[in-house]
Design a protein around this nucleic acid. Structure first.
Lengths: 116, 116
DNA sequence: ACCTATTTGTCCGTATGTATG
DNA sequence: CCATACATACGGACAAATAGG
């Protein structure tokens, strides 16, 4: 699993981490059944606090992307396979938004608003 | 212009307001050349502070959706017409994400991540 | 050229909540 | 759980740009 973190970004660390893992799942680089590193391992390897990693993991669990159990760590669920089917559509949309000079945040806002 | 604000939401007031206006523009209910209410008017009618409305307006200006100047108020630019062309594609994507049980925030995160 | 009303821009401060480590 | 830092929201006051008479 390859996730890059930018400590200078405006985006919270736990959100960057969660987003990175989501992307790994959506692009098929993280498969259902695969086990994530333990929170302590990941915190050490990324140079961030254990709480921060745990928060990202808990967000992903609430979304249904991973299954977490005491003593067994975090395992990727089948949701990852479903997400993958959306990947191309998302890429197409992003490409068109880019052509219009639209920013990531603006497009994200329009998408979230369209949910209502 | 019809924008509804939920004071109990986790989302910041200024962001809710900006998102609502973006949607009005993307769906064609707010046309290029149209003038937005003054910040004070809108603040009074929505029951929020002047500064909060101004912040939403300034975000929209940075995105290029509105043109704003002292003494003249805020006017919708031509960007609104371009955004409109994305509206259907966004709705389709949202519909498919919904069918997979995906939340608005998760989809928004995948979209933002796809920008990179 | 002048004055005035309108509207945003900027600064002060304060209170509250949340993110982070 | 705790301390620090930051974001949000509100309130007031004045400055600056604009438009129109």
């Amino acid at each position: 699993m390859l996730v890059t973190i930018d400590p200078g970004s405006e985006e919270p660390l736990f959100e960057q981490l969660a987003a990175g893992i989501r992307r790994e799942a959506a692009t098929g680089q993280l498969r259902p059944g695969e086990r994530l590193p333990t929170a302590r391992e990941l915190a050490a390897s990324l140079g961030m606090n254990l709480h921060t990693v745990l928060r990202a993991y808990q967000d992903l669990r609430e979304e249904g992307l991973i299954d977490m159990r005491r003593g067994r760590g975090a395992v990727v669920t089948d949701a990852a396979a479903h997400w993958q089917s959306l990947s191309r559509e998302i890429d197409d949309l992003v490409e068109r938004a880019r052509a219009l000079g639209m920013s990531a945040d603006t497009l994200g806002s329009l998408v979230k608003e369209a949910f209502r």
